[in-house]
Computed example of a mutant assay.
Amino acid sequence: MTIHVTGQLPVTTRPRPRSSGTHPYDPSLRVTALGGGHGLYGTLSALRLIAGEITAVVTVADDGGSSGRIRQEMDVLPPGDLRMALSALCDDTDWGTTWRDVMQHRFRSKDGVDGTLDDHALGNLLIVALWELLGDPVAGLRWAGALLGARGQVLPMSTVPLVMSGTILSEESGALRHQVVHGQAALAEAGRNGRVSHIRLEPENAPACPEALEAIELADWVILGPGSWYTSVLPHLMLSEQRDALVNTPARRALVMNLTTETTETTGMNAEDHLEVLRTTAPGLALDVIIADPGSVRDHQSFEEASARLGARVLFSKVGAGSSGAVHDPLRLAVAFQEAFGTS
């Protein structure tokens, strides 16, 4: 790998993967994937097998764990989901797998010691160090990507940290109870006791990342999901500039459904309910295709009807990782993406 410096931003050159019979690689295919956490990690792991130009646009409302501590102490974007996306774009060479493991490594103090580095991921600290040195979150992520040999770029959805809040609906003594919860981590946890509703992002006029808007405009395909529906997927539709970009882009749009509807954020919701929440959050958004594992949808006809209201056809494809629980298999998801991209 060779790193050339142009101005202050690195440009990484590396050999392109050769096409294979199973997963033909298209170096000209431009895909922008939106999400956060493990869901986006799965999407990117699949896309790097088939697409030459990949951009990840990542939520920046996380306030739990290592990211939450860093955000509170240093007034920066939460780096955790950005780190996950960079790690997913590392290739399967010794260089890529080593740096992926380094970025994901978490510190643990010896027994009996409550260390200040406990539970911090090294990648989070590296990203924040680059931000402090360069004074630019996008430039910092590009330098981190160059170090890792990442097969694509990672961008924040906004250049300022966002705060998420929402209402939890629950039943108590036969009456409907409304509880307002602040913070992404608290919102996800509170969903265990009710149904998440009416989520909000603050500041309301937060700016979208200009580079992310450009990536949405120039993509051949834009991918939304999978992931925590209310805290990783829907936030991308709540930032006004980004929502408008998604509605108006000439790119085709795909949605990847979760493998299960029973999560802490979606208690009592079926697959069709997921689509209805998305439709009401962004009324002007049309989709081209929705990828769903057949085992995650109880009523296929009803789901197809709900998809049609978003303008989308449904591609039912086995994309789960078998015995690994509700996790998308990168190889199977790559096959599903190829089918979706090639037939729409």
Rank of each mutant, 00 (worst) to 15 (best):
D91C: 07
I127M: 09
P137E: 00
G149D: 06
N124S: 04
C90S: 14
A150E: 14
D94C: 10
E132Q: 13
G145H: 03
L133S: 12
L130D: 06
L89C: 10
A139K: 07
L133E: 14
F107I: 13
K110A: 07
A121L: 05
K110D: 06
L122Y: 06
G149R: 11
T97W: 00
G96F: 09
A146Q: 10
L134V: 02
M103S: 06
I127G: 02
L117N: 05
G140I: 01
A150M: 15
G96D: 13
D136H: 07
T116S: 13
W95Q: 11
R142K: 12
Q153M: 14
Q104H: 14
L125Q: 12
G152Q: 09
D114I: 05
G149Y: 04
D111Y: 01
D136G: 05
A150T: 12
H105Y: 15
A139H: 13
T98E: 03
D136W: 03
T97S: 14
G112C: 01
M84W: 04
A121S: 14
F107D: 03
G145I: 01
G152T: 09
L141Y: 04
N124E: 08
P137H: 08
R100W: 02
G149Q: 08
D111W: 07
R106K: 12
T116H: 11
L141W: 02
G145N: 06
D92K: 14
D91S: 13
G115M: 10
A88G: 10
Q153G: 04
P137W: 01
V138F: 06
W131S: 00
A139E: 11
L86S: 00
G123Q: 08
L155V: 08
L126N: 09
P137Y: 01
G112W: 06
L130Q: 01
A144W: 01
G135M: 04
M84A: 10
A85R: 06
V113Y: 04
G145W: 02
R108Q: 13
G135S: 05
D91G: 12
Q104Y: 07
R83L: 13
R151E: 13
S109R: 10
D136L: 05
R108V: 07
A129F: 02
D101F: 05
H105F: 02
R106W: 05
A144F: 06
D92C: 08
Q104L: 15
M103W: 15
L126T: 02
G123S: 11
L126I: 15
T116K: 13
L148S: 06
R100V: 05
A129K: 10
D111K: 10
T97V: 14
R100D: 01
W131A: 00
W95L: 15
A85F: 08
W99Q: 05
L141P: 06
T97H: 09
R83A: 08
R142G: 01
V154P: 10
T116W: 09
S109I: 11
L148Y: 03
L117M: 15
A88E: 09
L122H: 05
C90A: 15
H105P: 00
L141V: 13
A88Y: 02
C90P: 07
D118N: 15
H105D: 11
W143A: 02
A88P: 03
H120V: 08
A139P: 03
D118S: 10
F107W: 15
A150D: 11
L130P: 03
L89T: 11
K110S: 10
E132T: 09
V113G: 08
A146S: 08
D101A: 15
A144V: 11
H120L: 00
L86R: 07
V128S: 02
A144H: 06
R142D: 00
